[in-house]
């Protein structure tokens, strides 16, 4: 069983190693928060987010392609992981969210099933919309924070202490949102296989899906503890140079966006008051963060924005699913015809 889950767990590990840095990179890179503190809070909240709020995104991915066999799910997750690995090696922009969708499409083509273009359109729409929404939110928060700081006189040193507190809060929220939004990328394909049974603990019942997501959350946490330190330092000091307050704004904006695309409770609440709802879709935390950084750049007058980054993101929207679909198709063919596994 664990062998079949290994591709998903590897995706989880990779997500923890890379995407946790999006949330905690600046705080750790600038030494505002110690790595150990960041890793502990991140692991805790990622698992909480995965278990408590991860089912929405998985359901949407399930609508795109519900893989009934565990071997098929293993192969699709493996194809996504391979695509991420290959594209990272080729220095191409890549996101796990887009890779898993591409791999699912590859399975759909391989299984000669019809593609649900309505669901696919909704998923791809969120990829475009999420960085834009993060940018708009970070602009809004930037002016809000600036308005408050201009009126509330806080000593520089005390502001530093306050910012650390805020960075930890935003990091915890960001980690929860990351777990809730991105667990579908890691374990979503295994949901239809119903690997774990429901467990009744007397007071509370844990569903098999929650157990699956909890395991995925653990693999993300493992990635955070084992490999994210270096990535965090790189993100914090090299990719974008933000001061701690603007870093807080970017992390909070991104966390809100990831939460919006993951929270079933919020979706239900918005529906109940007649507001348009956000589709529950795994989005790329990296692209969301880049959107937030660009938002800060726009708010500060639009200087020094590297517009080339936008082109690379747009390239990723198209290239990642196509490459992942091709890889999935090939790997599924090999699994079925060489290893005689039932992948359909």
């Amino acid at each position: 069983m664990l062998l079949f889950l290994s591709s998903g767990l590897f995706l989880g590990w990779s997500l923890g190693a890379n995407d946790a840095a999006n949330v905690w990179g600046t705080a750790v890179g600038t030494r505002m928060v110690r790595f150990r503190t960041a890793a502990f809070i991140c692991a805790l909240f990622v698992i909480a987010g995965a278990v408590a709020g991860g089912s929405g995104g998985a359901e949407t991915l399930g609508k795109l392609a519900a893989i009934p066999t565990i071997a098929g799910a293993f192969t699709v997750a493996l194809a996504a992981a391979l695509s991420v690995f290959l594209m990272t090696k080729a220095a191409l922009p890549v996101s796990t969210s887009q890779a898993i969708v591409g791999a699912l499409l590859g399975w759909t083509f391989f299984a000669r099933k019809p593609v649900d273009f309505a669901v696919l359109g909704r998923i791809m729409g969120t990829w475009v919309f999420s960085p834009i929404l993060t940018a708009l939110l970070s602009i809004l928060l930037y002016f809000g924070v600036r308005f408050v700081l201009a009126r509330v006189r806080v000593h520089l040193i005390r502001m530093d202490a306050l910012t650390r507190f805020l960075l930890i809060g935003a990091g915890a929220f960001g980690s929860y949102s990351l777990g809730a939004n991105n667990i579908a990328n890691v374990m979503g394909v295994f949901v239809p296989s119903q690997i774990f049974p429901n467990v009744n603990l007397g007071v509370v019942e844990i569903t098999g899906v929650q157990l699956l997501f909890g395991l995925g959350g653990l693999s993300i946490a493992l990635g955070v503890f084992t490999y994210s330190k270096q990535v965090m330092t790189t993100v914090g000091s090299e990719i974008y140079r933000l001061n701690p307050v603007t870093a807080f704004i970017v992390v909070l904006s991104s966390a809100i966006v990831l939460f919006l695309f993951a929270s079933e409770g919020l979706q239900e609440a918005m529906r109940s008051v007649g507001l348009p709802t956000f589709p529950l879709v795994p989005v790329s935390s990296s692209q969301s963060i880049v959107g937030g950084v660009i938002g800060i750049g726009v708010a500060q007058g639009g200087h020094n924005i590297r517009y080339g980054v936008l082109g690379r993101i747009a390239l990723g929207w198209l290239a990642t699913p196509v490459i992942a679909a091709l890889v999935a198709f090939v790997v599924l063919y090999v699994m079925q015809n060489v290893f005689a596994l039932s992948v359909l």
Partner: peptide
Amino acid sequence: MYSIFRKARGIEANIE
């Protein structure tokens, strides 16, 4: 977290 605020107050006092 409390200790950070305490240290911040200490430095503020020294600067003043």
